[in-house]
Amino acid sequence: MIQHITDDLYQIGEHVQTEHGFEAVLTYVILNDGNPILIDCGSHIHRDSVMAQLNELLGEAIPEYLLLTHSELPHAGNIASVAEKWPNIKVIVSNVMLPYIEVLPVLPLKQITQVVPGTKIELKSRTVEFVDALLKDQPGSHWIHDSRTGTLFTGDGFGYMTDSAGSQTVINGSANEVSQTAFEVYHKIAFRFLRWIKPERIAEDLRKMFTKRNVQVIAPIHGNAITVNITGHLDRAIAALAAVNASYKK
């Protein structure tokens, strides 16, 4: 389903059923004045649906960049269809990745650029900045900040399960805010390292990340974009991380 988030930013994608509820598998699309940017490209199991949604949203426009938060199949499994339709698309990944082995071998390696955290690129009316993914599984992951919409694309971070009704609805009002429990269930599955950490230390880094830049939208791949009460959602996610950590001590 194509959902408008804000300005020229959209979420598309599908969701799958898990034993803990519905899990979104999203792609974000920035129209960027005719030079669209994709953030992740969906799963191979949703190929037809994702390509149909992209065609509808983009029309004749040709996406210039595919920015991968990381390269696992739920995020990049559909790259074969994307590369087939737009063979010149440029892909940007983290410098901690080995593209020849970690990205499906469907497009020339010279089209894949690796960037270190802190890299900023100017794309028309916006600056896109790559930062460390504080909540990640694959080491070669990064988070991406878009200056124009104030969106932080957080890959697997800030994911949450929904019920079927909420499976694809932008979080834009107090009625559908994400609860601490919803963050907790997801983060416990996704990030087993939480058993070892001092929760206050990761909390400090997350708060710095959000304080240092303008964050108006949190855009996880496994959950709808959040455009309301960013501080409240950050607080709840941080409380969820602490709760996951505590659950290992029982």
Binding site: F193, K198, R201
Partner: peptide
């Protein structure tokens, strides 16, 4: 260090015990 950047938020003693 490369594989587990979450080590930034850990105490080494707990890991050694494990």
């Amino acid at each position: 260090w490369y594989q587990f950047p979450w080590l930034a938020w850990c105490d080494a003693d707990i890991l050694c015990e494990a």
